Every structure is written in C-alpha cells, then in structure tokens.
Amino acid sequence: MAKDLKGKELPVGIRQRKNGQFEGRIKHDYQSYSVYGNTISEVKKKMVDCRYKLEHGIFVEKSKITLDEWFLIWVKEYKKNDVKIGTVITYSNFYNYYAKDSLGCKKLSQIRGEHIQRLYNKLEERGLAVSNIKTLGAVLNGCFKQAVKNGLIERNPIQLATIPREKNKKARRVLTLEEQKIFIKYAKNSYLYNLFALDLRTGLRGGEMRGLKYSDIDKSERLIHIVRTLKYESGIGFFEDTPKTRTSIRDIPLTDDMISLLENQRKYYSEPNIIKLNGYVFHLPDGRPISRERVQNEIKRIVKRINDDGVVFPPFTLHALRHTFATRAIENGMKPQTLKAILGHSSLAMTMDLYAHVLPTTKAEEMNMIAGAF
C-alpha cells in the first residue's frame, strides 16, 4: 500500500507525488486513467466521477477532445435537462452558424483568447448584430466554463476576449398613432386582422400570440393566460415551449374590445357555437399553426398596398406592434410596474428602457408638466 510523504498509508489506488499533489488511478477496460487533487478527499471524489463517466461512456480525454465533441457533450449532459427545448435549439443554432467552422475542429485545450477575439471581429465585419455576438459569447462561455469545472482546460478563453462595441444601435421601430390607424385600416380585409388588432392591445410576443389557445381565454375572470410560445425548427416542425422567461408566464386583463376581437376570430373559420378549446386561436383554414414567416409576409403585403396608394410607410416586423403597444401605454400614463407585468419583462430595467424611447411629443409634454417648478 502506498504511503504519503510523511509515511502515512494512503487509500488503495492513491499515491502522493513529490510536489505534494495526490494522484488517483483507475483501471477500466484494461486501460489506466489518472486524476489529481490537492487533498485525498478531492482525489476520491474525482475517482468516483471518473469511474462513473467511464462506465457510462461519457468520459473524455483532456488532450484529445475537440470543441465540437465537447459542445455536444455539454448540451446533452448539462443543458438538455436544465433549460427549455427552445433554448437548447438556440444554443445549437448559434454554435453551428457562427462558431463551428472557425473553432469546431480545434482541440479544446488549444483554444486561446485570441481565437475567440478573432471570431468576434470576423462576425462583426460580416455585419452580425452585436446582440447576436453577445448571445454567442454567452453560449460559448457556458460551454468553456463547464470544461474548466471538469478539468479539461485550465482557463476559460471567453474571459480573455472582448465583444465589439455597438457602433450605431438600430432605432426601435414604433408606429406613430397615425401609422397605427393607417395600418389597421388597410389590414381590415386581412385574414390576420384580429391577430394584429389584438397584438396592438396586448403587446404579446409573436410566438405567444401564435401559440394562444381558446383554453387560455378566461371570460369569467376576464383574463388571457399566457402559458406557452409557439416555435418552429427545421427538422422538428412546430412545437410548444414555455414562454421566454419565468415572468413571461402571466395574465393579461381582457377588455371589451379584446373580447370582441377574439369572438370575431372564433367565427372566422368555424361555426359560431363550436369552440375547440385546445385549438390555436389564430391558425390556417385547415387548422395548422401559423408560422412567423406567414405573419411577416402578410405585414409586407399590407404595407405594400399602403405604399402603392402613395402613402410613405416604412416596413416593420410584428415585434414592432409590441413596442407600439408599450409606447401607447406609456403615452396614456400606464405605470412602469404595470407595463412590466403585462409585457412579461424579467426586469424593470427593460421596461424603463422603453420609457427612455418614448416619442418626442411625449417627452415634450412631460417637460412642459414640470416647467412651472423652476
């Protein structure tokens, strides 16, 4: 039995090296594996972990594993049971689109801070939004952080790189009150009119709106329960996921005009007295879900009609209707905490950012309100 540097007997499979560090050796399928630690208890724990990984086929050798290999292990073993399916898909998409070609074949232990920095810089040169580079950085940071914990690398290279600064942040598109009236007028004959009109009154995210079901409408309590978001992924198809954040699961009060819109939508494709509680409120004639692309194409079609009639009307996305709702709410005096709850923001700071972008006329009105104080 091996002894430590002071002559004390050590547990089976553990020895102490001349530098004072302890080494634990494990045999599996006629091969030897070593783990290291500063204490016997640390080495014992690592031996148990190593033996488990070897027996379950998830052990990876520090010197050989590539980022591609480790990313797949990280997603499968550490993320799939910890985050939403939509989040897992987002992680994989960002890695595959932006990092795989540049870094995937490199050994994990060989990736340095300058490699990450070079990747960030190239993505910026290609015109990728800084917000997307930040998301990629967050994904890679989680991946490398776990690699450090597992002893595969000594240092997280993400911490040695700097995400480029945002030069010209794109202005948030908000429909003016006049644009809002024009759009709704031209959208009257659209099969998505009720969706657009309801979105302007609730500020729902696109996936939340498309994932809304009749079972979520509580007329007795006059509430809409937001409990899911509808997503689409190539190779998977449509699937339901939980809303974006914990605070996104929320109730929105129903007004009389919102109830009318929902009633009109119910009658649009079906008999007035038939309600499919598990069916989507907004769907195609055959009952299939509506994709984000279909909604955006319908917005483009309506905007084109407006422009064809000689009215200058800049393009916008469905998400602009969410910002438009928030702006109308601010203009009409809704309190920040109330707006935060209705929008499902995870922090008040996100809501206050909207207040900082209210229309110039609103800013002027607010300034005039305090003019007499000086």
Rank of each mutant, 00 (worst) to 15 (best):
2 A>Y: 14
3 K>Y: 14
13 G>V: 11
16 Q>L: 03
22 F>H: 06
23 E>D: 05
36 Y>D: 06
41 S>H: 10
42 E>T: 11
44 K>V: 11
47 M>S: 00
51 R>S: 13
62 K>Q: 13
70 W>N: 06
75 V>Y: 04
77 E>F: 08
77 E>S: 03
81 N>D: 15
103 L>Q: 04
104 G>K: 06
110 Q>Y: 11
112 R>G: 10
125 E>R: 14
129 A>E: 14
130 V>M: 03
136 L>I: 03
139 V>L: 04
139 V>S: 00
139 V>T: 01
160 L>I: 12
164 P>I: 05
165 R>C: 10
185 K>N: 15
185 K>F: 12
197 A>C: 05
210 R>C: 09
212 L>M: 09
214 Y>L: 00
218 D>K: 09
218 D>R: 02
218 D>S: 03
221 E>F: 11
225 H>T: 06
226 I>Q: 05
228 R>N: 10
241 D>T: 03
241 D>W: 02
242 T>P: 00
264 N>R: 14
272 P>Q: 00
275 I>N: 09
282 F>P: 01
300 K>W: 07
301 R>Y: 08
306 I>R: 07
307 N>W: 05
308 D>L: 07
310 G>S: 05
310 G>H: 07
313 F>K: 04
315 P>F: 02
316 F>Q: 06
322 R>V: 10
330 I>E: 01
336 P>C: 08
336 P>V: 07
338 T>E: 15
350 M>F: 11
355 Y>Q: 07
357 H>D: 11
369 M>S: 15
